Amino acid sequence: MTHNPVFLAVDVPRLETAIDLVQKVSGHIGGLKLGLEFFCAHGHHGVHEMAKIGLPIFLDLKLHDIPNTVAAAMQSIHVLEPAIVTVHASGGRAMMEDAKAAAGENTKVVGVTVLTSFDDKDLSGVGIDHSPYEQAMRLAELSKASGLDGIVCSGHEVGAIHKQWKDGFFVVPGLRPAKGKAGDQKRTVTPREARDAGASVLVIGRPISRAENPLAAARSIEATL
């Protein structure tokens, strides 16, 4: 994995626009996060094109289905050689075990704990009577027991989880630079705070991709690390 922990979330509708954006900032980021929007729009072809830029690829597909289906999906992306792939930790132990067993040898599989757009009220609305912190801790423990490489959590939980899982691989999204707008993210911290707390990968999207000057924004964030 690269020394620069910043993975740029590339969720733009046109492939040409995505390639242009990444080429502008490639010297100041460590990898590319390609999520559902990108994958549904551009598929394997889009991932191959982005991989030509030469940065590690994080496929944020958040797989969540019966164990056999998730394992088959994981096998179908072997050819893309992703550095990281996500599954939903709430899919359970059997699903996570099968996902890890089916992943490529050099692919880290990480379990999504609680989405950074969720707060207590959102969790309660789907029948979970725990705080985001409590739920993230619980699902991190399950992810570890299931043999995953690490988890995805907010910067509010990563410090406590890192203390319990010393060699875990921790992906932290929902990051906003100091004085940045939170948008639809409800549990944000700065990239520096997340890194200091134990984050392995910092996922940053709009603060770079929608900045007036993406290169200057990427440089500025890198300088804080």
Rank of each mutant, 00 (worst) to 15 (best):
T2H: 14
V6K: 08
R14G: 00
E16I: 12
V25T: 08
H28S: 14
H28P: 01
G30S: 03
K33S: 00
L36Q: 07
F38P: 07
G46L: 10
A51V: 06
K52W: 10
K62T: 07
L63Y: 06
I66E: 01
P67T: 05
T69Q: 02
V70S: 05
Q75D: 14
V79I: 12
L80N: 04
I84W: 03
V87T: 05
S90H: 09
S90A: 15
M96K: 03
M96D: 03
E97K: 11
A99V: 03
A101C: 10
T107G: 01
K108P: 04
G111V: 02
G111H: 01
T113R: 06
T116W: 06
F118E: 08
D119K: 09
D119F: 08
D120H: 12
G125Y: 10
G125H: 11
G125S: 12
G127I: 11
I128G: 12
P132M: 09
Q135S: 08
R138S: 11
K144Q: 02
A145F: 01
G150K: 08
G155L: 05
A160K: 11
A160V: 05
K163D: 12
W165S: 00
V171R: 08
L175C: 06
P177G: 07
P177T: 06
A178Q: 14
K181S: 15
A182T: 14
G183N: 09
D184V: 05
D184Q: 09
K186L: 13
R187G: 04
T188F: 13
T190A: 04
T190P: 02
A194C: 09
R195C: 13
D196I: 13
A199R: 00
L202D: 06
L202E: 03
L202I: 01
V203N: 02
G205P: 06
R210L: 12
L215F: 12
S220A: 14
